[in-house]
Amino acid sequence: MKVDNIYKEEKKSAFAKLSEIIITMASRPSGLIGLSILVFHIILAFTSPYIAPHDFKAIDPTLMLQAPSAEYWFGTDDLGRDVFTRTILGGRTALTITFFGSLIALLWGGLLGIFCGLVGGKIDDVVMRIVDAFLSIPWILAMLLIVSLLGTSTEVLIPALGFFYGKGIVRVARAATHDVIAKDFIVSARARGHSNFSIIWNEIIPNVRDAILVEGAMRWSWMLLGFSSLSFLGFGVSPPTPDWGLMISNARGLMSFAYWAVIAPIVGLSSLIIGINLTADAFAKALGIDRSTKAPV
């Protein structure tokens, strides 16, 4: 449909554009909820070490599996540690690792995808075959293999997750590039004799940026899901560092009499994933991209 009077709109600074997008996102209830949850978690991640009421690793056998009380808001776990303290601290590692992991995924996946989309031909065929092959190894197996080979330190996990989740972005970036390079403005730039680099930088990136960013935001929530699954299986964060996935896995066996130790981290993790997802959704809608047709690969 025709839009209203847009003739008066002028070029905006990047900051103005960003704030406009955020306002558009927040104008829907789902976007507002998502953004608030995400912001809450980010603030919590920065401040939790200072506001935590107890020591997260203080083991006290006398306090085992206490029900929630004024002193221990969310009760205690099987080693007598404060569940509230561990819950508010439990998202920090996951949030940091997956955030930087997504950035890496975005970068290499986006650039390789654009490159393949632009050059096409044999190089494109070969790269896409390899990406397909990586896609066909179930994520959990591949991740398990990587961490069992290289360990579970942050320096390993960030690039490993970044690499693994980036291959999906390659496909999206490539498809978006394909859509763009068929357009006449690329033909026009090529006919003028611009270099490949200039075409990528000036013509393609501004037009595929949105699609790749949305994809990156989406990857973030999946990466978080994948990472906490790893933790849950015992291949992620190593104890005694508090982590939601690990906490759920530890408290699971005793949940018939101490459900609180399981519920608290579940709420923490679920809310963060839902928050990121709703935000990514609202972000996509604000940019006018439909993300519901994408498969979680």
Binding site: K183, D184, F185, S188, A191, G193, P206
Partner: peptide
């Protein structure tokens, strides 16, 4: 073609919606 060969011939396309990059002023 060298840059000058490219300069002497320019194109105007059918649909300006497609031939102008929507993200450029």
């Amino acid at each position: 073609r060298d840059p000058n060969d490219l300069r002497i011939i320019q194109l105007i396309f059918q649909n300006p919606d497609e031939s102008l990059n929507p993200n450029h002023t």
